[in-house]
Design a protein around this nucleic acid. Structure first.
Lengths: 217, 217
DNA sequence: AATCGAGATATTGTCGACAATATTTGTCTT
DNA sequence: AAGACAAATATTGTCGACAATATCTCGATT
């Protein structure tokens, strides 16, 4: 139930800024208002919806600053994840991740493969590094909270688009540093990798503004 | 409602590991099960309770590794907060924080003042730095999520105890770096400040084990 | 005496109904 | 025609009841 609503929001099925109508959503998910309200409270704590007392819940609509803050936070957390992974990630997992990158490399050649890679492939890479850090708190915060927020906006504009080959190359270099046990380098490369996405994002500010306008109509 | 339950848990009114009995808690807070369940879902997303389907919710009970992971994450996030605060914190807020530290210095002399300082004073200092970072995501994650978890265990053992004078001195130095606009130094000092707490924590491992034993009885 | 199983009890999950509050609609006044 | 007020509607907040599941109790069997 919570998961159903969450994916509906994250995939943009329910747009940012949209109001969550409890009776309507309850019908849509084939349940009653009780469980639905519980799900809304969960998503509220995960920062996916904002609730105004006696006036209902709306899907959050991130402004430029907030999206920038999100990436800034990701830099710190995933930089740390990369450093810890270099120290603690099991060799078997590192090798599995290398094979995954090889698959990504292969799929970049194909037309539709590139699309998949940019979305899920990128997610998979970061997901595994965070897990490899062996820090459960870090994994929870990033994967349960922040990633969902980001995915909401990945559908919206070009955050990760247009440079699959370069991104893949950066992934390889990060993994190399991790494999070599060089935590400092892994952290530096990961921060740069995410920082690049942030900079591209802020150049796209005008695009974003348009989207936010649409949301409020 | 959510807040009532949260403070009851954070203050140790309901012990870590304890089961949350819905009818009982509903009576205790003078409400019905509906709102209470919604509150539980919120705390679940905030990682304060763990829910097993069809078997109810329990207050989380952190093991040594998880508490270590919590501090590790705090190092990264608060280090970042200190660096950003050095770049963006308004001068007026910096001066106000300096006055707060002066109050702490005064209260260390008195007997009961030291107690207050160790608990709330420390919290206030970190709280203001995080706010001063101007990063809303960071503030939410730290203040709404992780701090509550930590406070739960501050009541339990000596995480921040026994060195009020030294901690205050470290606070002064961090603030100096922020005031001077030296983000790198501020980050370094903050990481050390929290890292010291983590090391003390892990030395206290035996104490912690005892507490966890008690929780499960 | 210990273990297993069936019944009894308690607890969680879900629903529909009602009360309280917000939002909309329509009317009246200026 | 524009704005303000009031009734009507819709939506959120809360509650108690019932169903489904888990947990406990106690007796029977080995």
């Amino acid at each position: 139930m919570l998961k159903q609503l969450q994916t509906a929001i994250v995939q943009g099925d329910i747009a940012p800024g949209a109001k969550l109508n409890e009776p309507e959503l309850a019908r849509r998910f084939g349940t009653s208002r009780g469980p639905l309200r519980e799900a809304i409270r969960g998503l509220q704590a995960r920062r996916l919806v904002h609730v105004t007392p006696n006036a209902g819940a709306r899907v959050v609509s991130l402004g430029v600053e907030q999206l920038g803050a999100l990436y800034e936070t990701r830099e710190a957390l995933e930089g740390m994840a990369a450093r810890l992974a270099a120290e603690r990630m099991p060799k078997a997992d590192i090798q599995a991740l290398e094979r995954l990158l090889d698959e990504h490399a292969a799929s970049i050649g194909t037309d539709d493969g590139a699309g998949y890679y940019q979305e899920e492939g990128d997610y998979d890479f970061h997901y595994r590094i965070v897990h490899g850090s062996g820090n459960a708190v870090l994994a929870d915060v990033l994967l349960d909270d922040l990633y969902q927020l980001m995915r909401m906006y990945r559908f919206k504009f070009s955050i990760g688009a247009g440079r699959p080959a370069q991104a893949l190359d950066e992934h390889y270099r990060i993994l190399e540093a991790i494999d070599g046990g060089d935590g400092e380098l892994a952290e530096l490369l990961m921060r740069r990798h995410i920082g690049a996405a942030r900079k591209r994002l802020q150049q796209d500010e005008t695009t974003l503004h348009k989207i936010i306008q649409e949301e409020h109509s």
